[in-house]
Design a protein around this nucleic acid. Sequence first.
DNA 1: GAATTCATGGAATGAATATTTCAAATCGCG
DNA 2: CGCGATTTGAAATATTCATTCCATGAATTC
Lengths: 283, 283
Amino acid sequence: MSSERDEIQVVSAAPRDFWQLREAMVSRKDQLPKRLAQVAAYAMANPDDVAFGTAASIAVKAEVQPSTLVRFAQAFGYQGFSDLQEVFQDRLRDRTSSYSERLRALDTHTGGNAKTAALFAGFCDGIERSAEALRERVPVERIDAAVMLLAQAETIYLVGQRRSYPVSSYLSYAFGKLGVKSVLVGSPQGTDPETLGFAGPRDAAIAVSFTPYASAALAYTRQVAEQNVPLVVITDSPFSPLITKDCVWFEVVEADFEGFRLLSATMALAMTLAVAVADARRA
Amino acid sequence: MSSERDEIQVVSAAPRDFWQLREAMVSRKDQLPKRLAQVAAYAMANPDDVAFGTAASIAVKAEVQPSTLVRFAQAFGYQGFSDLQEVFQDRLRDRTSSYSERLRALDTHTGGNAKTAALFAGFCDGIERSAEALRERVPVERIDAAVMLLAQAETIYLVGQRRSYPVSSYLSYAFGKLGVKSVLVGSPQGTDPETLGFAGPRDAAIAVSFTPYASAALAYTRQVAEQNVPLVVITDSPFSPLITKDCVWFEVVEADFEGFRLLSATMALAMTLAVAVADARRA
DNA sequence: GAATTCATGGAATGAATATTTCAAATCGCG
DNA sequence: CGCGATTTGAAATATTCATTCCATGAATTC
């Protein structure tokens, strides 16, 4: 063993972050053997292909042997090609996961300060991604449909438990300010089913709920549907159990971070509805 | 061959585009068997995992058998799971496609009421501007200071009225989930001053309030300060009357649109605090 | 210019993976 | 309640894939 002490010991540090790897590749590109340099060039030019392809398919496109890919990965300290490929995949993967990984890394390496920074940055990014997703997934026509439905309602019932409660309560605040009659269902008192009992076809309801769905929210929504109350649902999947046959539903994908979702996109949608409804009533 | 003409010929139409596939999944979700629906829901919620994972790893996460994934793919006209997976990968591949998709989406989106569209766009933009402002104005060191203060507290009192109430209530939810003892002050019952009376120097409080400051929030905050309770303030101006001499305060500028503020930046800051505090306690 | 190290191509190997198959379970319908 | 059809779970199978190995070729050094 001791006779092998001067073998490859440098292996230890293989960059887990794509940008670190990129830097390593750039800095070493002149010392790299011909074929390995070829691989590096291809990987930099087509990182997406590296992320998804198989060793064989990439080898063909980069015009090298599959074994060269393995050697390349090992030259950078990875165990094999698959190991290196992960780095390329993480680059594309949902950012949240890469963030929580970064957090875990920070946890062991540095003090709490850096961790807070990463946490904060993660939430800031989360906001922006939520905004992007919101724009992509919510069709304006459907907002119009919901507004029409809500504008005709006598009273708007707001259903939202647990995580969704802040949204409902903000809606309640907004409707109040806008002069739209609304009732917040989900108060700490237990009279909610009775309150909801007054709702009828001439009213409307907005239910907000995300996985894991609070059982109460589900029950209330069903009750509302059975009473033929026009319904608007804000949830996180088209497969949500809250969605009934003729409700107007919205899918809102909130960036999930450390198990907590910022409600920014949901809030934005809710506010859009509130303001648009008030506006429609004025006309 | 002709003897097999009446077998499954419907295979022809398998969507090669992610969004088409998505639509197909949504429209067929009610006719799908239980496990296939389960796969559909998982795929919609975690498209990235589907893109990168293996049939086995996805099956575990979606809590089905690998074979079910194959069946699912075939049910939508694909040859097998790998064939379907390509669609999920292409979504992540070159961003250009996702950009053009987004443009196409915008096209169809603008079909509705122009005013609604403007409103919606305004709120979406608002989110992003809030995120930007948040990053700029909040120094990480101060977050650390607040976290330190809160991590030592026995009980964390949460003060937030009216517009800020959703933030406080979400904090209450988050702290509850994270196992941090907290009390939400601002319940519909009028016992708040008494509740706050229990707070002392060994506790801490988070007050959230924006202009126009709810008088109750102001009063509560003063009361808390007088009882020498360490205080963290989230507000919208360095001149806010809530800020006391030795509290840790944050200025959060929410984009204002049509007189309504989305609470996205405030939520993000609040969540950062909550998660960081829970983390600090673990250590 | 010979010897040694290093890089490379190509095939063999063994592990991991998608897919198929079949029996059991569940559901719908008479 | 019982029959057939559909759905589901679990294991068997066949494929694909990453990796290793070894012989050959190129480059470097003495």
